[in-house]
Design a protein around this nucleic acid. Sequence first.
DNA 1: GCGTATCGGTACACTGGCGTATCGAAGACC
DNA 2: GGTCTTCGATACGCCAGTGTACCGATACGC
Lengths: 207, 207
Amino acid sequence: MSPQETAPGPAQTPRRSKITPERAQEFYAAVLDMLRESGYEALTMEGVASRTRCGKSTLYRQWGSKPELVVAALHGTRQALLPHIDTGSLAGDLREAARAIGAGSGRDTPLMHALSHAALQSPELLCALREALILPGLATIDDMVRRGAERGEIPADNPAAEFVSAQLLGAMRARPLLEGKYADEVYLTRFVDNAILPSLGLGASSA
Amino acid sequence: MSPQETAPGPAQTPRRSKITPERAQEFYAAVLDMLRESGYEALTMEGVASRTRCGKSTLYRQWGSKPELVVAALHGTRQALLPHIDTGSLAGDLREAARAIGAGSGRDTPLMHALSHAALQSPELLCALREALILPGLATIDDMVRRGAERGEIPADNPAAEFVSAQLLGAMRARPLLEGKYADEVYLTRFVDNAILPSLGLGASSA
DNA sequence: GCGTATCGGTACACTGGCGTATCGAAGACC
DNA sequence: GGTCTTCGATACGCCAGTGTACCGATACGC
């Protein structure tokens, strides 16, 4: 789903809109930034307008309301949370994923934090949050586990396999409350080595 | 820290306050209930006043402002999140803890959810949240692990040991996003059996 | 019983955000 | 170049919540 959907290119539809796809991305980026900084409730249309240097009327013309704008921002900025990872071993993949998630934790964790409560009260928002942030990462992790099982590194019916993504996501969300800071590369790598891999029956030495 | 602190008993101080400790508990319970239902931002002093059938003036007289009221509510209702658990084995303890947490998940998880974002923006609130909700449970879990190590069920330097509480808390916080519902008894028990215990090197059969 | 202080309730001013309407300016299209 | 549409900006009405002020009622201490 590219930004073209909300602002069609001139070739496809002769609608004259000065909101180019690039401009839409600016709006979306501003919205997500402000969400990260202050949360969903504190996000105001006036704030978005002033940060993007546009009038409120533009926002309401294009997106109708604040919830719709946020949903559009989530859908419109599908950027790869996790790069493609395939180190050849499950342990290597998970460590690499821990590094990637940790490196991006300053970006994605606050966003999830900011939206997780609001999402539980609005089905559309929950759906957008899951599709934009949760599911892609989930699929990536589950793919790693599946490939590991295909290679025979772990049994296909390893009971811990289905919890790997939940463990990673959980670590991201638990640490801020436990220690007051986001889960970074170092923490997540230790978590993978000391908790996830052992739960799969992979010793820390099997790299 | 008993409610006496905010509403001293008649024996200690001759101040005449009609807000008895029991009445204070009613206020605190209402605040926490409303937090669970709608979150921190949506909590209004007017709402608290109307639910507790008191005037706003009473709230402002006693607690000064909304943040202070919330902090007081958290401090004032220190109820045991986890009952005392000692089944004699670490696996048994953790399974029992999973049951207890799952049974109370309708109570504590929404509260953590509601406060976790607001807490990251207010040090006082974060502190109160950790002291009231996080640390007691954390200590209980860590105690279980420590006892298990003393009994020799796991090595004292088991690298997964320090992550047990983070994993449990993480599971509580991850599932709502992954599956859209709170972590209940069934889920947490499976999580303990299939992820946490294996990470500690305890097979699912070692009950 | 009487004085007093606090309670519950309401009215008030103030703030801030939402969503609409309006308007001049600037770009797009012919 | 002329027309038309959309943009950016501002002003407005509306609503909701905060925190204060006031008031009668009521329970307590003496």
